[in-house]
Design a protein around this nucleic acid. Structure first.
Lengths: 374, 374
DNA sequence: TTGTAAGCGTTATCAT
DNA sequence: ATGATAACGCTTACAA
């Protein structure tokens, strides 16, 4: 079969031919591929202007002609060329989604949310995975750059350099960032300080005094001050409760499962007293801690309470206590604002704090009195 | 700041103005937004044709002029309008990725893989999440359809109706499906039969005779015959070993964690003998089984061996024995073929079977002799 | 209500 | 090595 044949070579096409001839030619090729507005107009015996109005549902077309045109368009399999209408209108009906990762929980959920809103409103989603600092990144922010290809931009929890921000501003398209702050940009996300403090207070209210911290790396792409804010929330909440923060219980991860496992290992291999609870800056890291604890026989929550942030898809099944957030809803809202703005609602894009909530499950419990492993 | 202001209204632009005036006008607005090839040409004192050649790195431009043009283009922040060049060339440099889900492991990994290849070759990725059967689906396959907006299509493990397949064929763009068969379409994926058989044989070789099956649902989007093939592989492999297959140990899931948990519950709540091992058609379901087993105190692998298929990101941490596959590499390969085809390499797209491998970890072990729970 | 025609910003052909 | 110029397919005043 012919599914994979290259497109008909442009060069091959003769340059001057009347519409009828061209239409026939295409029909013979047996594909809808090249049906243009002109073909439809010719077949319907009307002008292209009328076809344009008709297919877009614009007024000023008599019901009769409209119906006729729609029928013919359907038969011919006509669909407008996005390039052509993009050129004519200056709009692509595509919004860009910029992300540092695509397969991690927060991002894939956010993409899903953005997609919902986008497709509901007949927009397309162009995905840019900037993974890491390198090449893709440059590509996005320079030469071949993507603007003029998108009507608006949704940035997912990315750390942007000053230059990059400037670049974006120049482009002057609606922009919103989800899941983290970027200076001077409208953003949507949870109150990270409050969420972290909530988690820590939950531990404290259970009676824990020896609480470890597993925070996120500050040097990866997905960080702005999110990690910093969560750290500060931890420290201040502990201080408020007059609890000591032990530097040796301060572990650094990178939001991955693996880093959670490693952090637990380091914590438990180190001589000295062990914490009775650990606050992890993400569920994925928390799960890593739990898996590793399980593996070496440390019982959760009896010997170690674990709390995370996110409410990852797996958290419920694992019984992980956490502070939940909904990246999909955040992205959906951000997208909605972007689209409203494009629809003329000036000021539709505005920073918004998204809700979070404590979800108590089975990985947190009061500390065991007395007995403590060496 | 002005980040979110709407684009300058087209209507607002006066229609006849000489290039110089327009350029100045734009400069005053302080953005790069409207710099066209004509602006660059004017500033460089050459024709647009030359600018076009220069910026695209085509031959037939003297080194001197090229350098000059590039410099000016840089200064002005010129970047070609994709709509315009799309119109002129008939190519969008965008490929579509069609998926039934975006946040599930297989899909997010595949998207990541496709993205790698795409961005490396200066293409853009347009994501279409068809989640469920409904609306998006229609949108994709009809009116507003996306073709003429993409140069090729990568289909991720989707079940397509006859009509839909026909539709795709008519469009006549390079197409490849990853992770499952679609009739008459070139496809890339593992040998599902072999992978499943490998898993079952592993269990058998460990000495298991009472093996349960947790297979995937046949009615969701992500199914072709993948589930069926895996079921058949299970049955035939059991038969080859002269082992009985008990219908009451045949559980149906939908590839989610939750369905794995439920399946375990049903299996264990039912009176009668229990299996000593279970073969799950996906790691995610296998994890569900394990979580639930853990929760009710059934020990893995002592009382129940569990094996899955996929090698999900979490499998290593959980010690899950599985038959691994790499959706990212499959999608990357598929994308490469698509792009090669577009680059003129006719026949670059061809069905390919991707590798799988048994990864033995800690959730499988020989069955406990004797003792069996009621 | 419908048609005419001037763009939109590139690319590509054909001269020069 | 460059420059005119005709497409590309659609939208949108403006006319009719």
């Amino acid at each position: 079969m012919e599914l994979c044949a290259g497109r008909e070579a442009l060069a091959e096409r003769e340059q001057k031919r009347d519409t009828v001839a061209r239409t026939t030619d295409r029909a013979q090729r047996g594909g809808h591929a090249g049906v243009s507005i002109e073909d439809v107009a010719a077949a319907a015996g009307v002008s292209t202007a009328t076809v344009s109005r008709a297919v877009r549902g614009l007024p000023r077309v008599s019901p009769a002609t409209r119906e006729k045109i729609l029928g013919i368009a359907e038969d011919l399999g006509y669909v407008a060329s996005s390039s052509a209408s993009g050129l004519a209108t200056g709009r692509t009906r595509t919004i860009g989604v910029l992300a540092p990762y695509v397969s991690r929980w927060f991002f894939s959920k956010a993409i899903e949310g953005a997609d919902r809103e986008l497709h509901a409103r007949q927009y397309n989603l162009s995905l840019f995975n900037l993974g890491g600092h390198g090449s893709n990144r440059e590509r996005f922010f320079s030469k071949t750059m993507v603007y003029k290809q998108i009507d608006a931009l949704l940035v997912l929890c990315m750390a942007l350099t000053h230059e990059e921000i400037e670049h974006l501003q120049k482009i002057d398209i609606p922009l919103v960032v989800v899941g983290g702050h970027v200076e001077e940009c409208p953003y949507i996300g949870i109150d990270d300080y409050a969420a972290a403090a909530t988690a820590v207070r939950h531990l404290i209210s259970l009676g824990h005094k020896d609480i470890a911290l597993l925070h996120g790396d500050d040097e990866t792409d997905l960080n702005f001050d999110v990690p910093r804010v969560r750290i500060r929330a931890f420290q201040e909440t502990m201080a408020d409760a007059r609890l000591a923060v032990r530097p040796e219980w301060d572990e650094l991860g990178d939001f991955t499962l693996r880093s959670g496992q490693d952090a637990f290992s380091r914590l438990w291999d180190r001589p000295g007293p062990k914490p009775t609870a650990i606050f992890c800056a993400s569920d994925e890291m928390a799960m890593g801690v739990i898996f590793e604890a399980n593996r070496v026989g440390v019982r959760v929550p009896e010997e170690l309470s674990v709390i995370g942030i996110d409410d990852h898809d797996f958290s419920d099944a694992m019984g992980l206590t956490t502070v939940g957030q909904r990246p999909d809803e955040q992205a959906e809202l951000g997208t909605k604002m972007l689209l409203d703005e494009l629809d003329g609602a000036a000021g539709a894009v505005r920073s918004t704090v998204a809700p979070h909530r404590l979800i108590v499950r089975r990985t947190t419990a009061p500390p065991r009195p007395g007995i403590k492993l060496a």
